[in-house]
Computed example of a mutant assay.
Amino acid sequence: MAVKFAQHDLSLLGISHQLPNANINNEALLNALSQKCGRLTARKAKTIAKRLGIEGRHLVRDLSTPTSSTSPSSIELSQQVLTQTLVNANLDIEALDYLLSHTCTPHTQVPPNAAWLADAMAFHGPYLELRQACTGFANGLQIASAFCAVNQQPVSIVGVETGSVYFDMDNDFIDTEQLVNYVQMGDGAAAVVLGPQDEQAAKISDIYLGQIGHQKPPGFYLDGGANDVGTKQMARFHHNTQAVREQGSQLFELGWQALQSRGYQLDDFTYILPHQANGHIDVLMAKALGISPERVINDAKHLGNLGSAAIWVSLSRLIHSGRLKAGDKVAVLGAEATKYLYGGFVYHHV
């Protein structure tokens, strides 16, 4: 269970987020389901939503039809958010040494989102994409840490999810796993521009990543790969909710232990930012750590679980909220249930 720390800190030069369309509350979400699949299915979904504590989300799909294309697409969302982030960083796209992205709901399997985004942004440099869910940000930071230290140039990371289209409002498609996906997940994107360490800039330090997934079945996965195409069925997310309940809290514990190993204590942090798995995350995390729920960021209640985009969206919202003062630190505790990864960092505000 060794944890990997990146050797070099990073400067955060810019960050922004983008949420598609208007927020959809549970009433609207469940009414759409009831019209297509009946009141019994909608009642089951309502029970799951209450248990998860999710009350709203932004979606790229059209709820008036059983299946839907993305609008906006993941590339359009990514272009919007990266454009704004470059403005925040006062940089042009040509200044980037590398374009990194991460998602588990890509625009196409190949080329990757990063390629489509490079086209949209007229970026002629190299790009790389990680096919990863909720800790894609942590792997992206491991790569960015090395690139920035060696090349002394800024890089960008874009995280995006548009997973709402992986749901068919048809009772032949729907089971409990699919209802979890329907009510829990949201869509969105966020981007950061990072540079080599600069004492005058906001800092990302203590970047860590670990995993405990050896020989464990996935807690969460998306089919539709070469192993599944022979079934000729729509790709779908699978949730092993029991396994996630058994393993999920350990991922947060291991993340906190990783930061403790670097000498940090709870009093060092103004806020704790965990992966936004459900709408009760502030109460659950506060109870586990023995702190006030007000110190734990909870965006999942109103945005749902944004998967690969979740940590960046919540950090962007926190930074732009004006709640942080110079010198404040935020402990980021990412967790991913696919094969049980944990990753995070410490954010230092200026």
Rank of each mutant, 00 (worst) to 15 (best):
D206H: 00
E199L: 07
N278S: 08
A42C: 10
A120E: 07
L259I: 03
I48A: 10
N181K: 14
Q79M: 04
G38Q: 11
D206F: 00
H302Q: 15
L52Q: 02
R131A: 13
L59H: 01
R131V: 06
I207D: 07
V350W: 02
G219A: 01
V87H: 13
G195T: 00
L96G: 02
G210I: 00
A115P: 02
L96R: 12
Q178V: 05
G279H: 05
L10Q: 08
L59C: 04
A288C: 07
H280M: 03
A335L: 06
V283I: 09
S64F: 05
L117G: 01
E55S: 12
H302F: 10
K203F: 00
K339T: 13
L96K: 11
S314T: 02
P106V: 04
N113R: 03
I75S: 00
Q197W: 01
S156E: 11
V87T: 11
N26R: 09
L77V: 04
L52S: 04
E55A: 12
Q184E: 14
R39W: 01
T270C: 03
K287T: 03
T65I: 01
A2V: 15
V87D: 15
L259D: 10
A89M: 06
G14E: 13
M285E: 14
G219N: 06
H17K: 13
I212V: 02
L318Y: 03
G136D: 14
W312Y: 13
K216Q: 15
S145C: 05
I207C: 07
A22H: 13
V346P: 03
E55W: 12
A32Y: 06
H239V: 08
S249N: 15
R51I: 08
Y221W: 09
P72R: 09
C104E: 15
L96I: 03
M285L: 05
A120V: 02
T108L: 13
D267K: 05
A288T: 05
K216W: 09
D328V: 00
R323A: 14
N171Q: 06
I281F: 03
L117V: 01
N151V: 02
G210C: 07
Q184F: 01
K4A: 12
D282K: 12
I319T: 03
A189T: 04
F167W: 15
S78T: 01
A258D: 12
G136E: 12
S164W: 13
Q132I: 07
L59Y: 02
D282C: 12
A201V: 02
Q84K: 08
F220V: 06
N181A: 09
A149R: 14
S261M: 06
G263E: 12
Q265K: 07
A258Q: 11
S101N: 07
Q265F: 03
G263Q: 10
G125P: 04
A45P: 14
Q215P: 10
K4N: 12
R131P: 14
T103I: 07
G125F: 04
Y98S: 13
Q200N: 10
L52D: 05
S205G: 07
R61G: 02
G290L: 10
H239F: 13
V3N: 08
N298F: 01
I157S: 08
P126L: 01
D62H: 04
V110P: 05
F345R: 09
G343R: 09
V313M: 07
E336F: 00
Q211E: 13
